[in-house]
C-alpha cells in the first residue's frame, strides 16, 4: 500500500458514493447511463469472486464488498426505483459491442488460463471501457450536470492514481502487471478529453 494506491481507492469510493447520493437525493437518474452502471456491476462481480476463495485483508474485503454493494444499489435505483427518470432513449450504446470483444480478448491474453484468472482479466479489460456508454450519452445529449462531472472526475482520477501506484511499485518492489498497466492506461486516456472539459469549464458540461 502506498499513497497513490490509497488515494486511488478513496477516489474510486468517492465517485461511487457521489453517484449513489446524487440519484438518491434528487430522486432521479437523469443523465446517467444505466448501461455503464450495469457494466461496472459486472466488472466488480467478475473481479471480486476471489472474496469466496481467499482472504487478503480486512481493508481489501471491506472495499470489495462496498464496491459490489454500491454497484448493485446503483443499478437497482436506475432500473427499478427511479426507472421513470431513466433516459433510456439517449442511453443507446450497445453493451455487447464491449462485452463480446473484451471476453474474447480476456480468453486470448491473460496470465493464466483458469476460470477465476480469465474472469479477473475480463473485468480489468471491461473496466477500461465501461464508461463509454456514459460518455456516449453525454455526447448525444450534449450536456452533463455538475454532480455528474464530479462523479466522472473522481472515477477517472482513480485509475490515473493507480498508474502512479504501478510506477511506484515497479521502482520500489520490482512489481508490474502488464495487463493491468495497459488497461489502466487505456482507461485513463478515455477520460483525458473529459478532464480537459472539467478543468476548463469547471461546472456542468455542455458541448
Amino acid at each position: 500500500m502506498n499513497i497513490f494506491r490509497l488515494t486511488g481507492d478513496l477516489s474510486h469510493l468517492a465517485a461511487i458514493i457521489i453517484l449513489l447520493l446524487k440519484i438518491w437525493k434528487t430522486r432521479s437518474c437523469a443523465g446517467i447511463s444505466g448501461k455503464s452502471q450495469i457494466l461496472f456491476a459486472l466488472v466488480f462481480t467478475t473481479r471480486y469472486l476471489d472474496l469466496l476463495t481467499s482472504f487478503i485483508s480486512l481493508y481489501n474485503t471491506t472495499m470489495k464488498v462496498i464496491y459490489i454493494g454500491c454497484a448493485y444499489a446503483t443499478v437497482y435505483l436506475i432500473y427499478m426505483k427511479f426507472k421513470a427518470t431513466y433516459d433510456g432513449n439517449h442511453d443507446s450504446f450497445r453493451m455487447e459491442f464491449l462485452v463480446v470483444p473484451v471476453g474474447g480478448l480476456a480468453c486470448l491474453v491473460n496470465h493464466d488460463f483458469s476460470f477465476l484468472e480469465i474472469l479477473w482479466t475480463f473485468s480489468i479489460y471491461l473496466e477500461s471501457v465501461a464508461i463509454l456508454p456514459q460518455l456516449f450519452m453525454i455526447s448525444k445529449t450534449g450536456e452533463a450536470e455538475t454532480i455528474t462531472t464530479h462523479y466522472l472526475f473522481f472515477l477517472g482520477l482513480y485509475r490515473a492514481l493507480y498508474l502512479f501506484n504501478w510506477i511506484w511499485r515497479f521502482y520500489f518492489e520490482g512489481f508490474f502487471d502488464m495487463i493491468a498497466i495497459v488497461a489502466g492506461m487505456v482507461q485513463t486516456i478515455l477520460y483525458c478529453d473529459f478532464f480537459y472539459l472539467y478543468v476548463t469549464k469547471g461546472q456542468g458540461i455542455s458541448l
Binding site: 481507492d9 476471489d50 481489501n60 464496491y67 496470465h111 479477473w120 512489481f175 508490474f176 502487471d177 495487463i179
Partner: peptide, 10 residues
C-alpha cells in the same frame, strides 16, 4: 514476480 496478478489491488 514479473507478471503475476495482485489480488490485493482493487
Amino acid at each position: 514476480s514479473d507478471s503475476q496478478t495482485d489480488k490485493d489491488e482493487l
